[in-house]
Nucleic acid binder design. Sequence first.
DNA 1: ACGTTATACGTAGCCTGCCTACATGTGCAT
DNA 2: ATGCACATGTAGGCAGGCTACGTATAACGT
Lengths: 114, 114
Amino acid sequence: MRPDAVRGHLDGLILAVLESGPRHGYAIIEALQARSGGALELPTGTVYPALRRLERAGLLSGAWSTVGGRERRTYTLTRAGRHTLGMHRTEWAEFSSVVEAVLRPAGPTTASGS
Amino acid sequence: MRPDAVRGHLDGLILAVLESGPRHGYAIIEALQARSGGALELPTGTVYPALRRLERAGLLSGAWSTVGGRERRTYTLTRAGRHTLGMHRTEWAEFSSVVEAVLRPAGPTTASGS
DNA sequence: ACGTTATACGTAGCCTGCCTACATGTGCAT
DNA sequence: ATGCACATGTAGGCAGGCTACGTATAACGT
């Protein structure tokens, strides 16, 4: 899958992996990769800024902690984030059905066409 | 649906509507709208440049004609375009299944969780 | 002791590509 | 002659993910 593909859907994906519980950035990247069967290999330069953006937007709340001598920033879905996730899912449903409707037909120019 | 949503998928959508036969730009816009149940209202400033881009890329071939005193540029899917459409469909299938896999789970934090 | 890999976070700048706004022209109905 | 549907196009803006880089600790092999 070409790297740019998630454009416009990144936020929803991140919110989704946080729905099942708080996670820190690195773990989010791994969860994304795991849930997608290895297809999603998002670079840190994509995820970390997105996390900060989502936090600034009030959809996530972040907190520092030190585990095994390493600094972690753990993010938790806020109420607003949960709400936004719902909207992302709705939008995805609509979007995917539209794309499918246009892309799928595989127009039978043969059958009873024109 | 927010206007920007088709980002990255426009080419595939256009190629798809041309699969069932040649069409001119204006008709492509209308076909896109019709097939999507009115959800896709792509502005001319989005579609026309895309058409030229796809033509330059060799995926479409365009030809001028005059119908009812009006100039039309009719686009036909080339062999390469048909091939590329197939790739777009494959990519869409992979992409959508990935997004669905990540977005869908709606993680049951209740079952055996915490 | 030293190098490499995994863990963990972050920023700067680029580039792609759709959108907004605008420009141009014909045919037809009022 | 005014307005709308038809028909095509360009210029510039902007969002947002990517590449490349920078920092730091822990674990492991040799």
